Simulated scan of single mutants.
Amino acid sequence: MIDGEKRKADILAALQQAEKPISATSFAKKFGVSRQIVVGDVALLRASGERIIATARGYLLERESEKLISKLAVQHTPEQTAEELHTIIEHGGEVIDVVVEHPLYGELVGGLHLVTAQDVDTFVKEAEHLNVTLLSELTAGIHLHTIAYESLADLTKIKQALSEKGILYEEKHHS
């Protein structure tokens, strides 16, 4: 069995090469240790300054991106989650995270890192499988998404599509 320092170096090296997230379970099998040991190794790597992101599908190394970044305010029911996320992806966006305002903790951020329609389907299935409460359910469906996109035209298309579906959170104009 390899020691902790070597294992952490191997985890980091694997993440530097990875195109897709790598789960703690797959690292655990590779190194012959428990999943919890891997979670601890990653926590130590993150504490030492490594930019490792934990997603629902596994660990990723944060990479510098040339893409533009914005936050969108949205509101929808839990049943509309897949529709909302697919709409963003279909119109050229990547969903980096979800942010909600919590009365006790302030801003709570959940990393999503959804790039493809398959990523969205996997996320939605996992949420159903785990039977968990979505962060947006803490705030009557109102939340923010940090999204990445190539051009302002993409951002316009994303906002327009979400608005048409009644998902974009907009000022309600009353006359």
Rank of each mutant, 00 (worst) to 15 (best):
E150P: 02
V39E: 11
L155G: 01
A56R: 07
S175K: 11
N131K: 06
L138I: 03
K20D: 13
L162K: 11
H145L: 01
H91C: 07
Y149W: 02
G32H: 10
K30F: 05
A54T: 07
E5V: 12
L162Q: 01
R51K: 12
K6Q: 11
E5T: 15
A24S: 15
E84W: 08
S136G: 09
G110E: 15
A28N: 10
V42L: 03
K71P: 00
G106I: 14
T122W: 07
L135A: 05
Q36T: 13
E126D: 09
V74L: 13
S163L: 14
K6M: 09
T116M: 08
E90A: 15
I142P: 00
G110Y: 14
H76V: 00
D3V: 10
L162Y: 06
R51T: 13
K6D: 09
G106H: 13
K125N: 07
K159H: 01
Q75Y: 11
L134I: 02
Q36C: 03
H91K: 15
E137N: 04
V74F: 06
S65L: 09
A153T: 08
Q17Y: 05
L61C: 00
K172T: 07
K8H: 09
E50L: 00
A14Y: 08
K20L: 11
I88W: 04
I147A: 01
L12I: 13
D119N: 13
L168N: 09
R63A: 08
T116F: 05
H113W: 01
Y105S: 11
L138E: 04
Q118A: 10
A9F: 12
E170A: 10
T116R: 13
T55A: 00
T81K: 05
L155R: 05
Q17M: 04
Y169L: 12
L45D: 06
P21W: 08
V33A: 07
V99H: 10
K159R: 10
A117F: 03
T122G: 06
A117G: 07
L61H: 06
A9V: 08
E101D: 14
P78W: 04
L15G: 12
H143T: 02
L60R: 12
L112K: 12
S26N: 12
V98D: 08
